[in-house]
């Protein structure tokens, strides 16, 4: 029964082909990394990483700890600065200029493993801050937009609560809504469910699946292979700072091309 349901969900999620978008994100951006390298002293976190994510494409990045997956997506919105190579978001090259940073960060949303909600603000205020201060939206418009996204992540009744009063799953959904309020062209997810209790993982994944269905460009670092199979257009497998394999989900899960990929899958699919 489970397999049948998965098949159904898979075809539904894939129905939104890259490039076609139903929902809120009108224009999805392409993200391109060309020969990107990043080092911390003698340690190479990223080595010669090249990747192109098409507009509306859903890419899942997986790999063992320390493989550089988090570093990769953190370089895309410049939370980390890459040392070599080039990164382009929607055709704009990333550099240190304040204008570029502001523009790229407004257009690329990020969801963190630890949620990182602002504890001293209510849920609604968390969502309204970005649009008001960065997009110049009025308070009334920001509020309307915020309530809209809260409904979309299915927790509108939590609007006036402080994040501390919410469960982990609810907090992460608020975090997703907060990023979506900026109406980004691409969304990055850094192990969004890794800090959640198991029973809350699915409520967050459901939101991400629905988002994927709207044609949003997504790069998701995750260990949730079920989600990857269901939603991803591409699986990128990394190890020791390099991209080892890049394939469609079925290909990667059924017939991994690399030895390290095979080893990785064997280990995580043991449970």
């Amino acid at each position: 029964m489970r397999i049948a349901k998965e098949e159904e969900a898979r075809s539904a999620a894939r129905a939104a082909e890259p490039g076609e978008g139903g929902g809120a994100s009108a224009a999805s951006a392409a993200i391109e990394l060309i020969g990107v390298g990043k080092r911390y002293g003698d340690f190479f976190a990223l080595r010669d990483v090249s990747l192109r994510v098409a507009p509306g494409e859903r890419t899942v990045v997986c790999g063992p700890s320390g493989s550089g997956k988090s570093t990769l997506i953190r370089c895309v919105n410049r939370l980390e600065r890459h040392d070599e190579g080039r990164i382009l978001v929607d055709g704009v090259e990333l550099d240190d200029a304040r204008a570029t940073l502001r523009a790229v960060r407004a257009d690329v949303g990020m969801v963190f493993q630890q949620f990182n909600l602002f504890p001293h603000l209510t849920v609604l205020e968390n969502l309204m801050l970005g649009p008001m201060r960065v997009r110049g939206v009025t308070r009334a418009q920001a509020r309307e937009r915020a309530m809209g996204y809260l409904e979309r992540v299915r927790i509108p009744e939590q609007a006036d609560k402080r994040p501390g009063k919410l469960s982990g799953g609810q907090q992460q959904r608020v975090a997703i809504a907060r990023s979506l309020c900026m109406e980004p062209k691409a969304m990055l997810f850094d192990e969004p469910t890794s800090a959640l209790d198991p029973e809350m993982i699915s409520e967050v994944l459901d939101v991400m699946i629905e988002l994927a269905g709207t044609g949003m460009t997504m790069i998701v670092v995750t260990h949730e292979m079920g989600f990857a199979r269901q939603v991803a257009d591409t699986i990128v497998f990394m190890d020791a700072g390099r991209i080892v394999e890049r394939a469609e989900p079925e290909a990667f899960f059924e017939r991994p091309a690399s030895e390290r990929g095979r080893l990785f899958l064997r280990r995580i699919l043991q449970h």
């Binding site: 919105n77 939370l79 963190f112 990182n116 602002f118 900026m182």
Partner: peptide, 22 residues
């Protein structure tokens, strides 16, 4: 926590706004 600053940065908030609101 660093995460607060990263969240503020990833929304596109500048230094002043980050200090003032977060």
């Amino acid at each position: 926590e660093r995460g607060q600053i990263e969240a503020a940065d990833s929304l596109g908030l500048g230094y002043v706004d980050r200090m003032r609101f977060v």
